[in-house]
């Protein structure tokens, strides 16, 4: 009974979060509305409990813990977490940027995932090493977490 309630609340949260994302994108007059579509495709992959927007409440095995576990925090800062690196960009508000990879990619979960896997392909000369050895599902979860950072 309580598990069902939790699931319902989780789903509600998740739909609200997604909804607010799209609303924000429309408000900003996002020029590449067509590239905002991939998140819809990823909905089927999405496990609702991982889409929580608030960073500190990231569950074990969620995007933030994967981010820290694989060492991303050695180079990047996300305020309010254990990630204090100063070599790479501060990712505290990654989700609210209009573009990523020095402006070459639209800021979508899909694009963030592609950047994590092979940054060198998208931004030649980039200092960040490729993380394409991580399982695809982990890359997607990290990307989803980062996209949700407003």
């Amino acid at each position: 009974m309580s598990a069902n309630t939790g699931l319902l609340v989780g789903c509600a949260f998740w739909f609200l979060a997604k909804g607010s994302c799209w609303a924000a994108a429309e408000e900003l007059g996002h020029q590449r509305t067509e590239v905002v579509k991939p998140p819809i495709a990823s909905v089927s992959l999405a496990a609702p409990q991982f889409s929580n927007v608030a960073a500190p409440q990231d569950p074990p095995g969620g995007g933030l813990s994967l981010f820290l576990r694989n060492g991303c925090g050695a180079c990047h800062t996300i305020r309010g977490t254990d990630a204090h690196g100063t070599i790479g960009p501060d990712l505290s508000h990654l989700g609210s940027r209009t573009a990523i990879g020095a402006g070459i990619l639209p800021n979508t979960e899909e694009a963030i995932a592609r950047f994590i896997a092979r940054p060198d392909l998208l931004k030649p000369g980039v200092k960040m090493p490729a993380f394409d050895m991580l399982p695809q599902i982990e890359i997607r979860m990290i990307a989803r977490y980062l996209k949700a950072l407003q």
Binding site: S65, L68, N70, G71, G85, I87
Partner: peptide, 24 residues
């Protein structure tokens, strides 16, 4: 702390702590 001016990340980011990737 790494060597930020030479883009060297802190070793601790991957190698210190029990919650890190078990392949590190």
């Amino acid at each position: 702390a790494g060597i930020p001016e030479r883009n060297v990340p802190a070793c601790s980011g991957c190698h210190i702590g029990s919650d890190k990737n078990p392949l590190y």
